[in-house]
Amino acid sequence: MNFTEHTKIREEKFGTVVFDTLTEKIFITDQIGGDILRLIEQGKDLPVILSVLHDNYDGDEQNVEKDVVEFIDQLKSSNIVSV
């Protein structure tokens, strides 16, 4: 999993900002979304991302997995990450 070429990610005071420079869309994520984006940036795949999040955040494992998968699907459908 990797960011598409036209995607720029920046950490700002108010959250992690994703710029899709092709469509000129801007996305802002909360802290957990930012963590997922950083892990993708480091080239981690889904099982690693899930295990890091599990270590860092409370919450039912299945719900976290469902949320992360949904989030990543959204990134894929918005053409921010490619597989």
């Binding site: 994703v18 469509t23 000129e24 869309k25 801007i26 996305f27 802002i28 994520t29 979304g33 989030f71 959204q74 990134l75």
Partner: peptide
């Protein structure tokens, strides 16, 4: 994840 701006002229966006 929120889309905060979409389909805006770039100069207006930035």
């Amino acid at each position: 994840m929120d889309v905060v701006a979409e389909d805006k002229n770039l100069s207006r966006l930035t």
